[in-house]
Computed example of a mutant assay.
Amino acid sequence: MAVESPSRLSVTDARQLRTKSLPAWTAAVVVVAAIAVSFVLINLTGAGGMVLTGVVAAILFVAFMGIAATIVEGSRSARNRMATVLIYGAFVLALLPLLSVVWTLITKGSKRLDGNFFQTSMNNIGAFDEKGGAYHAIVGTLEQAGIATLITVPLGILGAIYIVEYGRGFLANAIRFFVDVMTGIPSIVAGLFVLSFWVFTITPLWNDGKAAYSGFAAALSLSVLMLPTVVRSTEEMLRLVPGALREGSYALGVPKWKTITSIVLPTALPGIVTGVMLAVARAAGETAPVLLVAGGLNSINFNVFSGNQSSLSLFIFEQAGVASEFAPGRAWTAALTLVVLVLVLTVAAKLLARRNKLAR
């Protein structure tokens, strides 16, 4: 029995196999058209300035792109292109405040970026003195944030390990609940707690019955704020470690504690470092706890366990309220210094975490 072969389809026009699409230069043309139309409309009506012009131009760009895509590509492709435009627009909209903050810090904070700012304090500096720096505040920030990190990181990581690896039942749920509650505690509450417990109750025991401010008390209050962030971030990173890694280690006869220290923690290390640096960044930017329990100081104090001490955040707060034409420049430069300091510490911690082979 003969089998007839199917006849080949003849294509008279090769363009039938191609889907129509907008040219690559369409977006640029639409952007120019949207800006031009928005500029003309706003100027004719006198409704606003450059900000309103930009908002109207963004709306017109989305509308023009949707119309052009519908005409050329069809409604289905137009919806896809519109969704893409909205996603990119949301990204740019979220990025604009960050870029604005960075630009403001750089332009206003670079005016006092000199040796005097980083080598001197505000001791004996009056309202009409142009000089004066934040050396004492930088020392205070590094010491307070460093001690708070040394206190918080071991406690936070051990707490997260207990919750994920060992904790079951009421106790683990109670720890999670209190960690969640502590996450929303205002910074001034942490400062008041350390003020009443450490400054007014503990320090008088060895200070002839007198309460005493210190940078260490500020570090304790900062550690209270850092602890929930470290615990929660570490807990989430430990839960992301595949269970197969643990099971393979147990199958080889490795004890549970060694599996955690040699397999689980190194695998989750990059995420843990990120959580720790977020906590450090929050601690370095807190003002109320330092003001309550460290008191602030215009001169240099390297002894974190005795005497008042300042920090960069407190220095910014103080300079912002000083009636001097030179104070705002110091405040902006201190803010830029604080941001750069946190950035440097974060990059250094990330580079150290990348050296771990299991985390790659």
Rank of each mutant, 00 (worst) to 15 (best):
A2L: 13
A2I: 13
R8V: 08
R8Q: 11
S10I: 15
V11Q: 08
D13F: 07
A14R: 12
L17H: 09
A24D: 03
A28M: 11
V29F: 12
A33N: 01
A36M: 01
L44Y: 07
T45P: 14
A47E: 05
A47F: 09
G49S: 04
M50V: 12
T70K: 12
G74K: 13
G74F: 13
S75M: 11
R76M: 06
R76I: 07
A78I: 07
R81K: 14
A83E: 05
G89Q: 06
F91C: 04
F91N: 04
L96Q: 13
V101F: 10
V101S: 12
I106Q: 13
T107Y: 03
K108G: 06
G109I: 13
K111S: 11
Q119K: 09
T120C: 07
I125A: 11
D129C: 08
G133L: 02
Y135E: 02
A145G: 03
G146D: 00
I147F: 15
L150D: 04
L150E: 07
I151T: 01
V153H: 12
I157F: 08
G159Y: 03
Y166N: 05
L171S: 07
A172R: 15
A174L: 15
I175N: 07
F177R: 12
F177W: 09
F178M: 10
F178H: 06
D180N: 15
V181L: 15
M182A: 14
G184S: 14
G184P: 12
S187R: 06
G191I: 07
F197I: 15
F200L: 15
T203D: 01
W206F: 11
D208S: 09
G209L: 05
A212S: 12
Y213K: 10
S223N: 02
V224Q: 05
R232H: 03
E236I: 14
M237T: 11
L240M: 15
G243S: 04
G253H: 10
K256F: 02
W257T: 14
T259D: 14
I260G: 00
L265V: 06
P266G: 06
L269F: 06
P270E: 06
G275H: 10
V276E: 03
M277F: 05
L278K: 10
V280E: 01
R282Y: 07
G285W: 09
E286V: 06
L292F: 04
V293Y: 02
N298M: 08
N298L: 11
G307Q: 07
S310R: 02
S313Y: 00
F315V: 02
A320G: 01
S324N: 07
E325G: 15
E325D: 13
F326Q: 14
R330D: 06
A331H: 03
L336G: 14
V344I: 13
V344H: 02
A348D: 01
K350C: 00
L352Y: 06
N356M: 10
K357G: 04
